[in-house]
Amino acid sequence: MKKNKWFALAGVTSAVLAFTTACGGGAEQGGENAEGNAEKLSGNVVVDGSSTVYPIVEAAAEAYAGEQPDVKVSVGLSGTGGGFEKFTKGETDFSNASRPIKDEEKQAAEQNGIEFEELQIAFDGLSILVNKDNDWVDYLTVDELKKIFTSGAVNGDDKVKWSDIRPEWPNEEIKLFSPGHDSGTFDYFDEVILDGQPLNKTAQLSEDDNVLVQGIAGDKNALGYFGFAYYVENKDKLRAVPIDNGNGPVEPTHETIQSGEYAPLSRPLFTYVNTKALKEKAQVYDFAKFLLENGAEFAEEVGYVALPQEKYEEQLKKIEGLK
């Protein structure tokens, strides 16, 4: 009887072990069929970084598995900052970023002898959104946005009313929604709108953009911002506010974001590639090439805006020169 209990303990452990090994062994199919003439590559490609950029690179990695089934591409989402922390130590080949690399991150890379190249892969337009029932906001200027979102910019108080911005608007408090401080989306908004000033303390923060969508859709006095893809998916629940940067109000659309007319809120999305890996590992170069050649298609497919085609070709030449 005593023995039985020991068997049970050992049994549970080994059952789990056996099950996993069985699962691991039985499954060895790559994606679609490899296309003929290209040379067969193998090895690892390690990508980490921004969760905003993740869907584009995930799409590329998925399609790439069909072209080069023996190359193992892994894509993580530690966030822009978390990605750079690993990238500048030479632990990853690519680092996705929803903002350009910061000076201190550059220094860290230099100290560790890491050289890198910045590649733009798509555009995102930060959309400013209000509730469907909000019929008074026709457009906002950049200065008005700054006034609303900066802490203490109106009467030294964080409670801002619509009528504080323009007298003809309702005398009701604006409910603000913003992505959390860890997101690259916030970093970008901070840079172009807030100018490094503290964010209005009444703003509700969430790292999950879908929570922001729910919040704005549920409150008539809501005002918030997030990536263009989330707006496109929720057009029936929210209204995007045109933004006036001195040249008249511009609505965020595919065209205005791509042309840069939707300023200053259209932002480029990046991936940084380790130059040494690009030179020494054929699979890293090949994946970078694949990403730039098909970047436009993948960006559009997952809800972002493609760069103009010349831009991709320019960067393809650039990495070819580095090889």
Partner: peptide, 9 residues
């Protein structure tokens, strides 16, 4: 830094 996308086991 465990990845989210993997096409292999």
């Amino acid at each position: 830094g465990i990845p989210t996308f993997l096409a292999y086991l």
